[in-house]
Structure formats: structure tokens, C-alpha cells
């Protein structure tokens, strides 16, 4: 028996909202660039979960194909982002985002 028959879709909406908000909280709360990156992954996953929930409740596989593409894009994003972080660390000797304030007004 699957969750589709017993769990209302609104519960998944709430769960995804809470996970997304925790991701936003992580971005605002921390100064370590890697933790901020992980919070962005958390937000992506909240959206993925909602896409899968809608696709299952509507019996339409297109949403799940989209999640598949989002995973591919997230993998590419993480590879490039972590390479940039390595460069930043090599040049500034820290992963603190407050060091990167050259473009700040």
C-alpha cells in the first residue's frame, strides 16, 4: 500500500515547505561556504520531493522525468561549485564567505 491512498497531498506540501525553509535558514545562518552549498542542496531536494509527490498523485510520469533532470543539473552544479570553492580556499586560505567582499558595495 502506498502513501498516495492514505496521506493527503497537503502534508507533502507542508513537509516540502518546511525542508525548503530549513535550507533558507542554513543559507542565512552560516558563514561557511560549504554549509551554504549543502543548504542549497537541501532546497533542491525539497522541490524534488514536491515534484515527485505531484507526479504520483496525478499519475503523470513527466514530473519524475523532471526530477531526473534536476538531479543531473545538481550533480553538474556541485562539481563546478566545489571546484570554485577549492580555488577560493587556495587564494584566501579560508572558506568564510565574509572574506569574499570585493564586489560588495
Amino acid at each position: 500500500m502506498s502513501a498516495i491512498e492514505v496521506v493527503p497531498l497537503n502534508w507533502y506540501l507542508m513537509l516540502s515547505t518546511i525542508l525548503f525553509t530549513i535550507g533558507v535558514l542554513g543559507v542565512l545562518f552560516r558563514r561557511n561556504a560549504i554549509i551554504i552549498f549543502m543548504s542549497i542542496e537541501l532546497m533542491l531536494n525539497a522541490v524534488n520531493l514536491l515534484l515527485v509527490a505531484f507526479s504520483s498523485y496525478l499519475s503523470d510520469s513527466k514530473g519524475q522525468v523532471f526530477v531526473f533532470f534536476i538531479m543531473a543539473v545538481a550533480a553538474a552544479e556541485v562539481a563546478v561549485g566545489l571546484a570554485i570553492l577549492m580555488m577560493v580556499y587556495r587564494n584566501t586560505k579560508s572558506s568564510d564567505i565574509n572574506v569574499l567582499n570585493k564586489l560588495k558595495w
Partner: peptide, 13 residues
């Protein structure tokens, strides 16, 4: 979250 996917019948994902 993978457990949630299984609950939602999205085993491949």
C-alpha cells in the same frame, strides 16, 4: 527523502 520516494511509488527515482 529516498524513503519518501518509495512511499510515493517512485522506486527508480
Amino acid at each position: 527523502i529516498a524513503g519518501h520516494y518509495v512511499l510515493l511509488n517512485a522506486q527508480f527515482l
